[in-house]
Design a protein around this nucleic acid. Structure first.
Lengths: 214, 214, 214, 214
DNA sequence: AATGAATGAGACTTCATTCAT
DNA sequence: CATGAATGAAGTCTCATTCAT
């Protein structure tokens, strides 16, 4: 239960909450959170306006929910395609596989990623318990673990920094993807998402192979 | 003159337009475009509300102006710090210098970058003459030229794709910077912008040095 | 049972009613009836919203209850401090004692007096059986009885009118007190309630001693 | 211009303001301020809802206006019927005349008196410059001046206290009148307003003639 | 009987846009 | 051309009341 959300004691309440959350998920595919009125949300959810306010203190209390859905989707997606790393796998290949998986998930949840960045992340005070912070930390650690695991095959000395830079980069590239999921064909990057994922993996791999400046 | 903008034949009109544009620039430093009301804009510009509507058909007609200001600032910034590339300069160093320059400019104009991405780029139909398209093309070509210039020191075969990927990456990383110019210290990337710029340069450099997969 | 109230046949029902009434009494000490929502009332009473509606047809049906509580408090208060009038008591002193008693009770029940005047009395149609009317009649009669009892010591000829005027006056002065129980010290009447009660008694006494105009 | 009110530079603005104020005046004759919605007010005034908000920051900003109208009406009324006190006039008669005048004015403006007491006076923080305070002080001083003027014909020693008590009493009796301007015929005070005014005057007169207790 | 979730009318307020001056 | 008053649709939120459990 996030900040500003009201407790749901009954089964019925939980069902209602789910309807609202689902409606929000759908609505975000079409327009930014700002432009989804509570009335529209209620209608999509098939409930009355007042019902939304019975579950959420105000419209802003829905923002943490976005992050919540997003994290849940990622977990579900990750669970479905967990990557088992064998000791002797090639780092370049592992990165490529990982990026492909991540990209596939994001292509489906881009609308949430967009909302997370534009609302949840920009209003951290609304997100309970440093939720974004924790999530971010987790993803940074994931990258760090991978890199540490392959320390012997990496030329960078400062693995901590390398990990942070790599994570920042991946985050940035996914953000771009999230903001412009269906960018007009006029866009000058004419390669497929699959290709881009491969190249992003290569970029990280190459970076790790490059020794620091003297 | 962008879409929805009205012609300014007289001297006075142009002065008015300048005032409005300057006011918009200032306002965007404080809040997103959405939250800048026409009334506020008029007040900041020292003109009446009706006057804004005499110059711009509606509020959306101001969106292309954002891109216009942004491009102009970049040009001014770039002109002030043009990088002369000598034939025998080291590519890694050149990239680093370029990134530092770019970073410095963006740090100052982050509010515009943010607005460009959130409004101008998301509503390409509002931007006259494929303005964003042209701008994007230009920046892609810039990267491509640089890479072509250093073709001999690069291991990638497909220079066109490498250029596109590099440009996409740079764009993404700047977007992240633009959206969260003053991200809370809780953020897990604890390195300075200067450091990040260096690492980004390295990442592109390393990528260019890595031959394509077999 | 007032208008709009529903019969409570069972023991449990009566207990519920009591809880609601007590909650209303408490709530009125803090805010006007208007601002006490049914939900708040139910919570204060420790019952569900629906339960309130099982006992009272609608929110307005609570208004007569206010008068009921008020009358009951006055009776309790009066019973506790009944004034025995001896034949040879001085009228001026008797009035003074009465006013002091009345004032003491009202100071405690000012919130009810306020509510009675603002809601119960302004919506007589809601008050069952001319309840306010009866109450008013009773208080007028009380004054009349007292005055009749002291007829020999009074100069006024028209005792009925004098009684009515005196009752009206007392009512008015208590209303003022009820509406502004804790008026800011900036208020220009800087005397204590006790003093004011004394003076009010004097005023009535003096009035009774003044013969009608020729 | 009271608190929360916006400046009206143009003639047109002033006309609008007047329309709104007049509409408020009318509306208060029918229902309490609480129950007058901004939409209703706008409709009565023949303007749009937004227009009300252009002149008044919010609904509460209308409260000080009530006091303003009330004071203005009293002044207008008083001006029309100023009472010239001749040195040798009888105090009882003077009081009677004054009360009759006051009563006549109030009968017409009872709705404002009601609103002043329920809103303006209960929310002094909304009333600019201690406006109510000043008004109250003025009325107290008026009574005091009259009483001082007739000091020789008064038996009370403490004229200051006597003045305060008299003013408090008059205020209270008018409040009662304001709150129940058209009390149902069931009311037990069956005398006309004119009669009541006479009796109120007598009451004050008698009080002044009664020496303090020993 | 009791519960509390759901309803939806209606209140306040904002603001892009129009238009009389 | 400029001004700023006026407009009114639309948004957020409250709360008396209803109803399924």
């Amino acid at each position: 239960m996030s900040q500003g959300e009201k407790p749901a004691y009954q089964e019925r309440s939980r069902a209602t909450r789910e309807k609202i959350v689902a409606a929000l998920d759908e609505a975000l595919k079409e327009k930014p959170f700002d432009q989804v009125s509570v009335a529209e949300l209620a209608e999509r959810a098939g409930v009355a306006v007042g019902t939304v306010y019975r579950r959420f203190e105000n419209k802003d209390a829905l923002i943490p929910v976005i992050l919540e859905i997003y994290k849940q989707r990622l977990e579900t997606g990750a669970a479905g395609g967990a990557v088992e790393i064998e000791a002797n796998d090639d780092l370049r290949e592992v990165l490529r596989t990982l990026m492909q998986k991540a990209w596939a998930i994001l292509a489906k949840e881009a609308h949430l990623l967009r909302a997370v960045h534009l609302y949840a992340r920009l209003k951290p005070e609304l997100t309970e318990d440093d939720s974004w912070d924790k999530y971010e930390a987790q993803s940074y650690q994931g990258v760090e673990q991978l890199i540490t695991h392959y320390a012997d095959h990496i030329k960078r000395k400062d693995l901590k920094r390398a990990s942070a830079v790599a994570a920042y980069f991946l985050n940035a590239i996914f953000l771009e993807k999230g903001l412009y999921p269906t960018m007009s064909p006029a866009s000058h990057f004419r390669y497929s998402g699959k290709t881009l994922a491969d190249e992003a993996a290569d970029m990280v791999y190459a970076y790790l192979q490059l020794p620091e400046r003297a």
